[in-house]
């Protein structure tokens, strides 16, 4: 992740990702590398300004809970992290809602885009179709 979009905010990004997808808690370093590589590929064709904005958004998400809870996002327990992100998801400002939607979409892409995650949820679509399911 050294040269990737979220490398400078890696801990913050992973803490948010664990709140979005609780199963990410079980990822080892290789699993995180795979998730982050997928996210990076998803961002590859986007303008560099989008990547900068996402980094800034992650930083903001980490700091904003100071105002409400007196702690950064990383220092909160899961219940408060969830409560905070629910508020962000429902924010009055469209810009904030959009930012959160984009970030959560990337995290879902990284997590559920892994072959291992698809198998873990029981997704079994196969090019052979009915041939292997009758």
């Amino acid at each position: 992740m050294s040269n990737t979009t979220f490398a400078p905010v890696r801990d913050r990004f992973r803490t948010i990702a664990r709140t979005i997808v609780p199963e990410a808690e079980a990822l080892d370093e290789a699993g995180w590398a795979e998730l982050e590589s997928i996210v990076e590929q998803g961002l590859a064709s986007r303008p560099s300004s989008v990547r900068r904005q996402l980094r800034l958004f992650v930083r903001a998400l980490d700091l904003l809970p100071l105002l409400r809870f007196g702690h950064t996002f990383r220092a909160l327990d899961r219940r408060r992290r969830t409560r905070f992100l629910l508020a962000v998801q429902d924010a009055r400002l469209l810009l904030v809602r959009r930012g959160f939607w984009g970030l959560r979409t990337l995290i879902f892409m990284g997590y559920y885009g892994r072959a291992g995650a698809a198998a873990a949820i029981g997704y079994r679509a196969d090019v052979r179709g009915w041939e292997i399911r009758r």
Binding site: Y111, A118, Y123
Partner: peptide
């Protein structure tokens, strides 16, 4: 739909 599309 597929896992990521569904999750999104």
């Amino acid at each position: 739909y597929f896992p990521f599309t569904t999750a999104k």
